[in-house]
Design a protein around this nucleic acid. Structure first.
Lengths: 338, 338
DNA sequence: GCTCCGTCATGAAACGTTTCACAGAGGTTG
DNA sequence: CAACCTCTGTGAAACGTTTCATGACGGAGC
């Protein structure tokens, strides 16, 4: 299958291959007349540039890699969308990789992306794996960390301030007069859980409350609705102290399960218990009682990360590494409207 | 930046470049001794194959394109996940493209993917755009249609039977003794809405009901929770006939909004109105009253599509085009447990 | 009329692989 | 011992671009 190449175009237009290449890459170097002649030839022959050859010769590709834990997670989906939009605007293409939080898969993909000679990678590191950043750099690939704040000054990174989010949510509840709290979350080894909790505690301390009396932790195994329901049951069974008047869940799925179980037990939300979730997934607003939640600028996170990466690629010398931290935002709904 | 190439490896291992290439591509053609010597050299030099050169020479890339309407839509997210898993298992890489249902974007991406010389494309066609399938084929790219059933016998396609889904849901409601229905959906120009509706009507006819009396259409502008709530309000205001006893919504978001508005008005679900959604998104189960819904094998859809595509690529001659249609499945929950 | 300069176009060399025709070494067969 | 394999390894020719040194042409300045 002889694909028509630049040579055929050249012959058909009666010029040299160099000229065709110039028409493609530096149109201003070519006179109006020949340029249009070449363009017509391209059109007539249905010529399509071969990017492999282009990359090989020029030493740079038009692709970048995106490694996330799992696109099926709405958080990463939105991030991916942001990345893709920026990338397409800049004429680059995104190669999508799911590591499933596995270090092995992550390594495999990094290898593949190196073979592809992508311009750079955006990666949410699996676990606390140490990325072979230097090795990548050596191969001329830029690296930007996603959803991981800047513990490395020699790297660009983009993240959302989870501690601030926890604090924000708590201050909202404090302002409504609450003084008896619970924090529902998955294992605190999950960074996000731990940081959101820390934010909550900071807010409580800031309000002059004694942590030991003002807040209890309800820790469940998962971060889904089922676990949320379990947390609710545990609190309901916890007769001696009675229910807390305000609850912060480490994510919206937990909050949804929690709410359902509470409603079923006849507890009124927000009158008896005020509830705040985290992530502001689409369904937080669609729940039986719309849930107040902490929104993260996920799409923008992806956009910014892609822009940082492409900037670093385009201007490796003048590039200053940035650690960007976004601030979350509270979306108030009925679940705290008491 | 002189990346170390096959030549350096050859020199370092004291063999010819041809031999190194053989070690990489047909290890059995090389003696044990030299093979390990070469492998060691590769390791010591940190050599990474240049896929651009490889593709250029061999005429085939290791990439395939995936064009969806929007990854942020959970449906496509799951599909993408299926595609990616299969692809990575086969050593291929996925280039992700969002067309946003725009024909222009779709064309642009197809052009880019051609330049990349991807092995093939998986595409959910925007609108009813006619894909330039033949032009793509000419360039040696395989094409598989996603979520669009086989109106073209010369093409592989993968889809879910929406009509069957509508029928399934309706039969479930009929079996529970309902005889007064409503179908809540967005514009019927959306293929999915139209087909699900058709399935419902077929089931009703099959049960010997007269359509004119047994079912009303409630058509709203969107496919989200807000529109669902609007549909509910419209039915509530529709005093003369009273409420239907069973409602099928064209997707789960509609169903969630619908439910919320009904509950707020004091209508009991499922006692007063039974409710069925569509898509079985994760949150259907987490709603205030868990929603019975029609599940689609989205992940598997993606897997199958990717497999068909790769098969076609690997064996263009012996490949027989298939139009695969998946059957949806009903997941019964409390919203119809009356 | 001469030099000098800018504008356009040319042709060949590179980019890093894969592939292929071929060669040398050793073994087997008749 | 000649003829003929098989097993390994070689070297050079592609693949389709980009890039770069070079050249042709015509006009401006002196």
């Amino acid at each position: 299958m002889a694909t028509t190449g630049i040579k055929d175009v050249a012959r058909h237009a009666g010029v040299s291959v160099g000229t065709v290449s110039n028409v493609l890459n530096r149109p201003d170097r070519v006179s109006e007349a020949t340029r249009s002649r070449v363009l017509r030839a391209i059109d007539e022959l249905g010529f399509v540039r071969n990017d492999s050859a282009r990359s090989l010769r020029s030493g740079r590709t038009n692709a970048l890699g995106l490694i996330v834990l799992d696109v099926a997670n709405p958080f990463f989906t939105d991030v991916a969308r942001g990345v893709e939009d920026v990338s397409s605007r800049r004429g680059t293409v995104v190669i999508l990789c799911n590591s499933d939080d596995s270090v092995v898969k992550q390594e495999t993909y990094l290898q593949v992306l190196q073979e592809q000679r992508v311009r750079g990678v955006l990666v949410t590191p699996a676990h606390d794996s140490a990325l072979p950043v230097d090795a990548l750099r050596t191969r001329g690939m830029a690296v930007v960390l996603l959803d991981r704040s800047g513990d490395r000054p020699d790297l660009c990174s983009v993240a959302v301030d989870d501690e601030a989010g926890g604090q924000l949510a708590t201050e909202h509840l404090l302002a409504a007069g609450h003084d008896d709290f619970a924090f529902v979350s998955g294992p605190l080894t999950i960074r996000q859980c731990e940081e959101r909790r820390r934010g909550m505690r900071r807010a409580l301390r800031g309000a002059g409350l004694r942590l030991s009396g003002a807040v209890r932790d309800v820790q469940v195994s998962g971060m889904n609705a089922r676990s949320g329901a379990e947390a609710a049951r545990r609190l309901l069974a916890d007769g001696k102290k009675g229910l807390p008047s305000a609850v912060l869940c480490a994510n919206d799925l937990l909050a949804m399960g929690f709410m359902r179980e509470m409603l079923r037990a006849g507890v009124r939300i927000p009158q008896d218990v005020a509830l705040v979730g985290y992530d502001d997934i689409e369904f937080a607003a669609a729940a039986a009682i719309p849930i107040t939640s902490v929104r993260q600028p996920t799409y923008q996170l992806g956009q910014t990360a892609a822009e940082l990466l492409l900037d670093e690629c385009e201007n490796p010398e003048g590039h200053a590494h940035q650690q960007v931290t976004f601030q979350p935002e509270l979306v108030v709904r009925e679940s705290t409207a008491g």
